[in-house]
Structure formats: structure tokens, C-alpha cells
Amino acid sequence: MSTVMNHSIALDRRSTGAAPAKAATSRIADDRTLLRTAAEISRDLNAPRPAIYWTDLLLSVAIGYGALFAAMTLPSVGWAIVAGMVSVLALYRAGSFIHELTHVKSSALPGFRVAWNALVGVPLMVPSFMYEGVHNLHHARTRYGTVDDPEYLPLALMKPWSLPLFVIVSILAPVALLFRYAVLAPLSVFIPALRRKVVEQYSGMVINPAFRRRHPEGAFRREWHLMEAATSAWAITLLTLVATGIIPLKAFLVFLAVAAGTTLINQVRTLVAHLWENDGEAMTVTAQYLDSVNVPPPAFLPMLWAPVGLRYHALHHLLPGVPYHGLGEAHRRLMKALDTDSPYHKGNYAGLPGLVGKIVRSTMIDRR
């Protein structure tokens, strides 16, 4: 997901120092062989398998909340930290299913969306409406990499200080979400101007600060309001229980720390999900693929920091309809079917350190 849990940050494109010349990626023509082969080899992989989704989600939730409780209650600081780290990874994996919700039809996974929101979205204050209706714009052919893409910033063309700011600010996301749902949401019911601002600027998991979200309509509007009301009630209840001492302050701070850990890992993953080299021009599908990143096996750690298929982010931009459990097989088939000079092979990278280094080096190029 881009962003998959990407939280808004105040990085402005107009002060990035981006080059006025068109990025090379915007001039890449589509590779018809790649697109045709990807479509052909994935025809039998498009159906989501409910048993995999439910088992994965429920195990992640059980481990995540179990470890969170242990982190709150264990007397040993060392073991509490270990439990906290386990909780971060498990809840991060559970949270990453929000990306799947935007691509899989609800009818293919009956009850899964409701269950995800009840178990993850509302408790972690990231209900699915914050991604639904937003992430699909990132996949729009004419929007990707442009100023109209909610999940894109030309990070590789920005100043070097932009990268640490981009990552560090994510730690504040849980506190910002508490404020959004416990304070701004209730107030916005009575203040129309505030409501417009909350909907347009504080209701999407985006990284483009120029993006303004449209107000919801129809059935989605009712679903939005239900999810928002539930999350607001949870946030207010949580703060009330802490203020009255029913929930110990230590337990509350551990919860915030674990939630911050999930957003931090996700922001690091987001940092390397793309090469971020486009300067605003519309791109072909092949160009979008080459500006995105796969971190396939044999690398092991991406299973932790890019779970639920996110390690195949570039492939996902080729085949957004393939569920996460089918991406590994699609990757293996494409690696065998395509020649070594195919653009597909150029979208695969060895791991996190090399990708971070590549983006850092790009920000240090003088483009004046």
C-alpha cells in the first residue's frame, strides 16, 4: 500500500528543488511483451482465497494483541520490549490488509471488511475509508506520479533533509489520529468549515500534501460515517479511561509506542516502495513499473517490513487485481517467461539498504 498505512506529512512539492526537466521515466514507452505476458500468466491467480485471508488476519491479530498485552504487563523491561516488537510486526501485518480491501471486491470475501475494521481499523484508528477511494487514484493511468496522485512525492528529487523528515514524522501519526477522531471529528459535526477541512485533508492515508479528497457520496458516505463514528467513540473512550485511571498510563503509552512502531515501519517501506524519480509527468504502465520496487526472495527480511504481498509492489502495479497470495507465483512465472533483457528484471532489488542508498544518493545530485 502506498501506501498502503501512509499518513500525511507537510512536505511541499514547491520547495523540493525538483528538476524542471522531465524525468527519464516519463518518456519510457510501454513494453507490450511485458504487459501481454503478465496478463496471460496471471489469469488463474485473480481469485482471492478466503481461507488464506481469514487465517492470516486472525493469526496476525491474535499474536499482535497478545504480544501487546504482554508488553503492557510483563515486569521485565527486556521481555516487555521483545513483546512490543512482536506486537509491532504482527499488528503491522494485520494493518497491511487495508491495501487488499481496496482491490478485492467485498463479495469475494464476505464479512472480511467488517471484521478487519472491527479488529484493526477502529482500534488502531485507521478505518478502511481512509484508504478506500484514495488508493485507487494511485493506480489511475493518468494520475500516477503526478500532482494528482495522493500517494506520490518526487522524493528522489527533493533535498536530502526531506527523507529523514518523511520517516520521522510518521512516529507522530498515532497522536495525530487520536486528535483527529477524539477532537476534530466531534467538533466538525457542528462546524461546517472544519468538517470540510477534516474530510478533504485529514481523511486519507496520503503523502501528497497538495491532495484534497472529495466528499463521499451514496452508500459509501453512510459507511464512512459509521466507521468514523465508531472510531471517534473508541478514541474518546480510550482517552477517558486513561484520564480516569481505569487504563494505566503505562499501558496507554505502550499502546501508542506500538502503534507508532507500525507507522514507522510502514513509512520506511513506503520510502522504498518506489524510486520516486518522476517529476509530475504522466507515465506509461511500464514506466510506472520501473519506478516501483520488487524485493523478491531470497531476501528474507522483506517478509517482515513488506508483508501481505507488499514486497512485490512493482508487480502489483502491473497486476493490481491479483491478490497478495498470488503475487509470488506470478513473479516466478514472469521470471521464467521473460528474457533477461525484459524491463521486468529491472524492477527487482536485493533489499532495503541498497534502495535507501539509491534514493539518498539521488537527493544529493545538484539539479540547479
Rank of each mutant, 00 (worst) to 15 (best):
P154C: 11
D291M: 06
V82A: 10
A243D: 06
F252Y: 11
L334M: 12
A51C: 00
L172S: 15
M158V: 03
I247K: 02
R14V: 12
P216C: 03
S2G: 12
G133I: 02
R180S: 10
L334I: 04
W224D: 11
P123D: 07
L91Y: 02
P298G: 12
P154Y: 05
S26E: 09
A80D: 04
H215L: 09
F252H: 07
T55M: 11
L177S: 02
A62T: 14
A62Y: 06
A306L: 08
N278I: 09
A314N: 02
W54E: 00
G204W: 03
F300R: 07
G347I: 02
S362K: 15
R361M: 12
P320C: 04
P353Y: 06
L58A: 09
P248T: 09
A233W: 03
T146F: 03
P320T: 01
R196H: 14
D149I: 09
H139R: 03
P186Q: 10
Y131D: 06
A19W: 11
P48N: 04
G204T: 06
L184Y: 04
A94T: 08
H274M: 07
I52G: 02
T25N: 11
K250Y: 14
L249V: 10
T240L: 13
A282Q: 12
M72L: 02
L249W: 15
F255I: 08
I265A: 06
A173I: 01
I168H: 02
G111I: 00
P75G: 14
T263I: 05
K336W: 01
M1C: 04
G133F: 03
R180A: 06
H316P: 09
L226I: 08
L290C: 04
M364F: 13
A282G: 10
P164V: 05
R32I: 12
S42R: 01
H138N: 06
Y324M: 08
H316G: 09
P307S: 08
T284R: 10
Y289A: 02
R221A: 15
Y92G: 11
L187G: 08
T102S: 14
E217T: 15
V285L: 14
V88G: 07
T16H: 06
S76Q: 13
S26N: 09
P174H: 04
T237K: 10
R221V: 10
A330E: 01
A90E: 06
I41G: 00
K358R: 15
A260C: 10
D148E: 14
A251C: 04
W224C: 06
R222P: 00
F220P: 01
A90V: 01
L318A: 04
T363W: 05
D31V: 08
A80N: 03
L249K: 09
W234Y: 15
P323W: 00
Q267T: 04
A176Y: 13
H7Y: 13
T25I: 15
A287Y: 03
Y181V: 04
L58R: 03
V114F: 14
L355D: 01
P160I: 15
T33I: 11
